[in-house]
Amino acid sequence: MTGRHPVDEGLVTAVREHLARRPGPVTPERVTSALRDTGTVVGSAAMEQVAGALRAELLGAGPLQPLLDDPEVTDVVVNGPRDVWVDRAGRLHPVPIDLGDAAAVRMLAVRLAATGGQRLDDARPTVDARLPDGTRLHAVLPPVADGCTLLSLRVVRHRAFTVDELVAAGTLAPGLDAVLAALIRSRANLVVSGATGTGKTTLLSTLLSLADPAERIVCIEEAGELTPRHPHVVRLVVRRPNVEGAGEVSLADLVRESLRMRPDRVVLGECRGAEVRDVLGALNTGHDGGCTTLHANTAQDVPARLEALGALAGMSREALAAQAVSALHAVIHLRRDRGRRRVTEIAVVDRDPDRGALTVRTAVAAPEAGGTVTGPGWAALADRIDWAG
């Protein structure tokens, strides 16, 4: 596989110029129409192949687009023109793609950043953007990247799995599904924790799909990744500052705005900074049923992670613990073992009676060997969800 499209640069230029003469959004339909207008004579099957290649070149990720379209691929990383890897089933595999040279990789990164509405150049050599199809892009230019532009593309699959599908896939041990459904039904405030790529957003989308259809869910995200199957979901997305450094709308700003939108559930796609103060404040003022995801290696690491984020917001350890213990009811932790993503633990948030520090206690654990085991926090969790199972 060379990764080269059977389309010459002259044809790409002709289609690009044709689109430029007619202002408007560049859609797949317009690309196909522009191709026909160039007078290119090919058969219908070849026309669709060429149109697809042009759409990838003008709208998508060029030679990388077929990899992103592969349903088994979750990530594509580029280390050099002929050093491309994909993540399948939790493992990285090299793919034989030739992107040309270092200049071509840089041009691809700059174009993708522009497609995501971001600037990437020598003055701003790193970018974190969301492409129109939801794919998350991260790129670093030399000399910050040593040798060649580095690209990282994470595919967002716009589909919420059902609880039954997650049980069948092994993500949920039998019995955990009922506990999670009870947490949603009781409007508990939840933290979904785990390392990168463990499926936190996927699980949260599934859980939100269980919410009462009459509820209004406000999702606050850096990129629109949450896809719950629910009839009343509205989304707020951050806006980055412009080249003059003005116009930013942060996650913390959006959390405050969401409280004026008559939400039944306030959902923060990922808590990663000073917005933790606003989220805890919201969940402590009657906004039950809130959820967020958090990067942490274990459920027991969640208190330390929250304290670190609280420090960014100017919160003392004591203030953070006082807020979190009343605002957060349960932690749902995921791990990825040998490519398999699974919920390993549900824990309750508590406060150490001696030190006053925030802590978590295991309520239900799901060992790798199978089954579930209750822990010291089970009684508190069962009381919170009115468990009768």
Rank of each mutant, 00 (worst) to 15 (best):
A363T: 01
T374A: 04
A160V: 04
L280Q: 13
R30G: 14
R216H: 15
V218T: 06
V41S: 11
A14T: 02
T359S: 11
T201F: 05
T2P: 00
V156K: 01
A330H: 05
G43C: 06
L131Q: 08
L309N: 10
A388V: 15
I220Y: 04
L153H: 08
A365T: 03
L334C: 14
E222P: 05
H230D: 08
V31S: 07
S44I: 01
L190E: 08
H329F: 04
T13P: 12
G134W: 04
V360Y: 00
N189L: 08
E307R: 03
T359F: 12
R111K: 09
P142N: 04
E275A: 06
G339V: 00
R240F: 00
L328G: 01
E48K: 11
V140P: 03
D278H: 14
D122Y: 09
C219A: 15
L137Q: 04
Q300L: 07
L19Q: 10
H333S: 11
N189G: 10
V73R: 06
A246M: 01
V105M: 08
D288G: 15
E248W: 13
T32I: 04
V302W: 02
V238P: 03
C219N: 10
G100H: 03
G43N: 01
R36K: 12
V331K: 13
V95K: 10
P25N: 05
R154F: 13
M47W: 14
L259C: 03
G389F: 11
C148G: 04
P228I: 02
G356P: 02
R91P: 13
L180D: 06
L358V: 13
S33L: 14
V41H: 14
K200N: 06
P213E: 03
L172Q: 07
V237N: 09
V266F: 05
G370Y: 10
L236R: 06
P353S: 07
P94I: 11
P376N: 14
D164F: 07
P367T: 06
T126L: 10
A103V: 10
H287L: 03
P263T: 13
T32C: 12
S33Q: 15
M1Y: 00
L137D: 00
G310I: 11
